[in-house]
Simulated assay, not measured.
Amino acid sequence: MQNKTRYLFDSDVLISSARLHYNPNYCELFWGWVAEGHKAGLFFSIDKVKTELLDGEKDPLKIWAESNTLNNFFHPSISSLPIWRSLSTHANDPKKEFQEGAKTKFLNVNKADAWLIAYAAHIGNYTIVSNEASAPNAKREIKLPDAAAWVDVKTIKLFDLLKIHATNNFTFKT
């Protein structure tokens, strides 16, 4: 049975991959794997992630994000505004006791995390690829996996996704 779950990449996963393990200058296979997953209809992201990737100098990741290979990789997120508002309600729930800075950071309309979760919940059948670990008792920061759970969105670590959809030398597998 084919896995029909689609995946949304968080900006931190792509940035960390480019800066730490899979720099596009020497590890093109990883980026080809992402492109193959996209062609297979499984790997995507949203406009807010692209904006974060394009912020800064002209580096290999910025060039990758602007490439034609990624046609329709970055989906517009505005349609998920009602879910984003729901996340705002959760974040501002006094019972959760988040510090003001945590709420401000998470609900920044120019940042991707809340929009990524909202889009995944709105469209459905998406799992978010994130480096963040759950910290449900944190008050200084709202972690993406914890906020995703508020609206029943799943998250997965990149290395776990690689176990599912990669073989030798980043060959994409369905």
Rank of each mutant, 00 (worst) to 15 (best):
L54A: 05
V34H: 02
I78A: 13
D55V: 07
L70H: 00
L70A: 05
S79R: 08
E52H: 06
L87H: 10
V49G: 06
R85I: 08
F30M: 02
F73W: 06
L42V: 07
D55N: 14
K48M: 02
E52N: 03
G32M: 09
W84L: 12
S77G: 11
L70Q: 03
L54I: 09
S77D: 09
L87N: 11
E36H: 13
R85W: 04
W33F: 04
P82L: 00
I46G: 03
D55M: 12
V34M: 01
I46W: 11
D47S: 15
G37C: 03
L87E: 04
K50G: 04
N71T: 10
L53E: 07
K48C: 05
D55K: 15
S45F: 06
K62Q: 15
I83A: 04
V49T: 14
F30R: 04
W64P: 02
E28M: 01
K62P: 05
D47W: 03
L81I: 13
R85Q: 09
L70C: 05
W33R: 00
F43A: 04
L81D: 10
W84A: 06
S67T: 09
L42C: 07
F44D: 02
E66I: 04
I83N: 03
S80N: 10
C27T: 13
L53H: 08
S86D: 12
